[in-house]
Design a protein around this nucleic acid. Structure first.
Length: 420
RNA sequence: GUGACCGUAGCUCAGUUGGUCAGAGCACCGGGCUGUGGCCCCGGGGAUCGUGGGUUCGAAUCCCACCGGUCACCCCA
């Protein structure tokens, strides 16, 4: 059997309707917060991701869907959205627009990882970015926005973790200190951490191995190394959150897998999702726009993982409205009437279903019942001849005749009957 | 990418120590009610038992490989 490729999945109607519901809630809130949608390609030059996410990150080193195009250039299915949005921002001179510029985009991302619940190779994100706002108020506002969106889907018990990565100036000395610290006890660390000590010391702190964590109890922590400006930014950020009553946990070990972050970073986790419990995450990336060739522009953003949000969301029971009327035609002529009636009534705004398969009345009623139709219009040879159709209320079982002159008249009478 | 567990109708599962083992419930279609649903009763369609090899007189049942899922690691949304 032909199956969807590994890590790629179909969304069947039940799930797709929840998806659409969540997405519309998100759009509604984003609009209230002043965000505009931007739609960008899922494919970019590989170089864009290598330069923005970082050459030595796992994403770039081993998780990208990269291929060589017919003309020889290396292209990659986007593993995240920020790089593309920043590219578009620069390419179209969006820095000339009134600032801050608030954008969001929703779509698929691709990462070649081993699939698991809440982790697909094609997954979807709601990606939110603000350009041209350097102050911590915006950082806090984005956190509030993320929490509000997730909450609107019915998510509960979310845990907000925050940290500051500082700026390149204060991070560099810290990085060195940490590297020294790690190398000093190298032989007691796990293999991964030994490797991290050289290449990416910050990530070691995030190690889940107990032994390593025990070693790191004494490790230098970034917040202690922040320069005055960064510390001020971080403190102000936290004050905004506190004053808004948004509870959070400071996690000095929190780091992110992408190199471009500066200062504020945060993650929103949902208990009960297992190892993949980060539903939303983001942070500030003040250096990225200029690093990619644009004008010096501070920026902050975050992304919500749709699939993970779906796992914790509690959408309303009935997202799909049942038909108001089911037309049950018996015979060829009746079916032609049914077609026209359905057409006209739908145009008038009624949710109408019918069936052309020539099934028995019994089968048609069963179908109407299954669809939870409110009423059934029984349209048989007799009814047509006597110019009297039968309209039945499926909930009560009551039925009555509806006399009519012609098709137009019948449409009107049904409308009057249904609207009352 | 590493490890563990798992893979029987659309769905949830049963299938003893390899030998009527290809089944059940739900869903779907139809009949009982030749033009009246939801309950009930009856019947029907639907499975190369994930795929491909191998062992065997004989495999869903044992072995191997591959594919896929789940969980953990890695990492991350």
């Amino acid at each position: 059997m032909l199956k969807a490729v590994r890590g790629f999945k179909d969304l069947l109607p039940e799930e797709a309707s929840v998806w659409a519901y969540l997405e519309s809630r998100a759009r509604e809130i984003l609009a209230r917060y002043g965000f505009s949608e931007i739609r960008i390609p899922v494919l970019e030059r590989t170089e864009l991701f290598a330069r923005s996410i970082g050459e030595t990150t796992d994403i770039v080193e081993k998780e990208m869907y990269t291929f060589v195009d017919r003309n020889g250039e290396s292209l990659t299915l986007r593993p995240e959205a920020t790089a593309g949005v920043v590219r578009a921002f620069i390419e179209h001179g969006l820095h000339t627009r009134p600032k801050p510029l608030k954008l969001f985009t929703i779509g698929p991302m691709f990462r070649h990882e081993r699939p698991q619940r809440g982790r697909l190779r094609q997954f979807h994100q709601i990606d939110v970015e603000v350009f041209g706002a350097a102050s911590p108020g915006t950082d806090a506002e984005l956190v509030a926005l993320a929490l509000e969106i997730l909450g609107a889907g019915g998510a509960e018990g979310l845990r907000l973790e925050v940290n500051s990565l500082g700026c390149p100036e204060c991070r560099r000395p810290y990085r060195e200190k940490l590297r020294e610290f790690l190398l000093a006890r190298r032989d007691r660390l796990c293999e991964d951490c030994q490797r991290r000590a050289e290449r990416n010391p910050l990530r070691a702190l995030d190690c889940k191995k107990e032994n390593c964590q025990a070693e790191y109890r004494e490790a230098p922590e970034l917040p202690d190394f922040l320069c005055e400006t960064c510390r001020g930014h971080y403190e102000e950020f936290k004050t905004y959150l506190q004053e808004a009553g948004l509870s959070f946990v400071e996690n000095p070990r929190l780091v992110r897998g992408l190199d471009y972050y500066t200062r504020t970073i945060f993650e929103i986790k949902a208990p009960g999702l297992g190892a993949q419990d980060t539903v939303a995450a983001g942070g500030r990336y003040d250096g990225l726009v200029s690093a990619l060739g644009g004008p010096e522009t501070p920026a902050v953003g975050f992304a919500i993982g749709m699939e993970r949000w779906l796992l914790i969301a509690r959408p309303p029971e009935s997202l799909r409205l049942p038909p108001e009327l089911f037309i049950a035609p018996l015979g060829d002529e009746a079916r032609r009437w049914a077609f026209q009636l359905a057409f006209a009534l739908r145009k008038k705004g009624l949710r109408v279903e019918t069936d052309y398969e020539g099934r028995s009345l019994k089968a048609l009623l069963r179908q109407a019942n299954r669809l939870s139709a409110e009423r059934v219009l029984i349209l048989g040879e007799e009814e047509l001849q006597r110019r009297k159709v039968l309209i039945k209320d499926l909930a009560t079982g009551d039925q009555m005749f509806l006399p009519f002159e012609d098709l137009r008249d019948l449409v009107n009478r049904i409308l009057i009957e249904m609207r009352f």
